[in-house]
């Protein structure tokens, strides 16, 4: 009895192994009457030839060059348009359920006041000017991003070149990443974003309801050899380049300035902080 059971298991094992083997599957899938040539083609995947690449992408914003909201507007607009960022003027639900009308706002790059952006730098001796001028805020693409650690499905991940990316296909809308992000750089789609778009950039996908989104450093433009949209629209106020390259623009802009973490308890090494130093 023992013997025959073992034999059975063995047979079952062999069969299972046989069925699982890829060649067998291919045969199963390909045979049958009619077309007999359906072997899986072996396509190769590679990088675009003219893509911009870097060891570690970084951005430096020279806040001295922005004095009023109107200076920021074209930059924000450029990003919104390219990435199909929705804008809901009549968010009744948001108005009804929350005093904060911006609760359901989707933002990749946006206008922020100093105190919100650099809470630890704010003190009563701060130059009066800084209290009134607007600042640009966007995803910091932290070197050690807490959102990536928080994501249960690895929908948020960090590319080798430092860009913190979202894979919307995988996002399950749990919003752990939003809780993890110290900078509020992430937005959740409470509504179908297409409802908030007057015009759609067909070439770039929208998101769907129930996913989180954020700035992607224009990864899709870098792949085509273009700089990020905000950089292009900033007339040189925003620099973009390889932080690991000592000769890059960004390194040049930073040279001689003190680097310190903006939020002491966040271990991430944060690129955004540098713009703060420049304007001092």
């Amino acid at each position: 009895m023992e013997n025959s059971r073992r034999m059975f298991l063995k047979m079952a094992g062999i069969t299972a192994a046989g069925l699982a083997a890829a060649p067998a599957l291919t045969t199963l899938a390909s045979s049958g009457p009619g077309e007999k040539h359906k072997e899986k083609p072996v396509g190769k995947v590679m990088n675009n030839a003219d893509a911009l690449t870097a060891k570690h992408w970084g951005m430096v914003i020279d806040t001295r060059k922005f004095t009023s909201a109107s200076d920021l507007e074209p930059i924000i607009e450029a990003c919104n348009k390219i990435h199909n960022i929705p804008k809901f003027d009549d968010d009744l639900k948001a108005m009804m359920f929350s005093s904060d009308k911006k609760r359901h706002e989707i933002k990749w790059i946006w206008e922020e006041e100093f105190g919100h952006l650099f809470p630890d730098c704010e003190n009563r001796y701060l130059a009066e000017r800084l209290r009134h001028i607007p600042f640009l805020a966007l995803c910091n693409h932290c070197e050690n991003p807490p959102c990536v650690r928080a994501c249960p499905t690895k929908a948020t991940f960090q590319r080798a070149d430092g860009i913190v990316m979202m894979d919307y296909h995988r996002c399950i809308g749990c919003r752990f990443c939003m809780a993890a992000c110290p900078y509020g750089s992430r937005s959740f789609n409470f509504r179908d974003p297409r409802e908030g778009l007057k015009e759609i950039n067909v070439e770039y996908p929208t998101r769907m309801r129930g996913v989180v989104e954020k700035c992607n450093f224009c990864a899709e433009r870098l792949a085509k050899g273009q700089l990020p949209a905000c950089v292009e629209a900033s007339n040189g106020a925003i620099l973009f380049g390889d932080l690991d390259d000592p000769d890059s623009d960004v390194r040049a802009a930073l040279r001689g300035r003190v680097l310190e973490p903006s939020l002491p308890f966040i271990t991430s090494y944060n690129n955004m902080r540098w713009s703060c130093l420049i304007q001092r």
Binding site: T27, L28, A29, S30, S31, G32, P33, G34, E35
Partner: peptide, 11 residues
């Protein structure tokens, strides 16, 4: 009608 071009596993 006999189906054509379907994998054997279907049969």
């Amino acid at each position: 009608k006999v189906p054509e071009g379907v994998g054997a596993i279907f049969y």
